[in-house]
């Protein structure tokens, strides 16, 4: 066998190694993307639970002051129950949207109660919940970026073939409710 022939055989061998490596990297990348989504969701879930805990304490504080705001308090309690019963991403997203909307109403109505507004515990809970809300919004964006990257990748060639082999399907985005995008309507009697 001539030098040229051996050179070509080795070069082909190296090209095959690169192709195998590329295939493995696509496989690993898809697995990583799928796990990124699960991790991003867990990171949101941690904050949703934290908000739930803070909310329980907040409700205890406001109950005494806002006796006549039954509608607002019921809305918050309902959202809290919906969150506890939610299982899938879609259900939790819906419950989260309900909660965000209920909290906005609660904080808006609290403006009518100067004593409550001056209460140190209320101020602390309000700031803590607002902080968590902001973090949830950022992590929701991150989750949607992760889902978007995954959904695009599994549609692209050559990733599509491996994704089909693995049985990967497009994942659901964490959608923000239309009501959440609009300003809160506040009515004073």
């Amino acid at each position: 066998m001539g030098a040229l022939m051996i050179g070509i055989v080795i070069a082909l061998g190296l090209i095959i190694i690169i192709l195998v490596g590329y295939f493995i990297s696509i496989y690993n990348s898809l697995v990583r993307l799928k796990n990124n989504i699960n991790k991003a969701w867990s990171n949101i879930d941690v904050l949703l639970k934290q908000r739930h805990d803070e909310l329980t304490k907040l409700l205890e504080t406001v109950k005494g002051y806002m006796k006549y705001e039954e509608k607002v308090l019921t809305k918050v309690t309902e959202a809290r129950t919906a969150f506890l019963n939610a299982g899938s991403v879609g259900e939790k997203a819906k419950a989260d949207n309900m909660m965000s909307s209920a909290l906005k109403s609660l904080f808006a109505v609290s403006e009518n109660y100067p004593d409550l507004k001056a209460n140190q515990s209320f101020i602390q809970f309000q700031s803590r919940i607002s902080e968590i809300e902001n973090q949830i919004a950022d992590r929701r964006e991150f989750y949607n970026d992760s889902v978007n990257t995954f959904n695009i990748r599994i549609e692209q060639i050559p990733h599509m073939f491996i994704a089909r082999m693995l049985g990967y399907r497009a994942r659901e985005l964490f959608k923000v409710a239309e009501a959440d995008r609009a300003d809160v309507e506040i009515k004073f009697d």
Partner: peptide, 29 residues
Amino acid sequence: VFFQGFKLMRKHRLIKDIPRSKIRAMAMG
């Protein structure tokens, strides 16, 4: 040097796969 190419390939994929986080909401890992 050839196998170093695979390390660079892994790094390239990793950057492409991980979306940008905002500092406030940065998770562990």
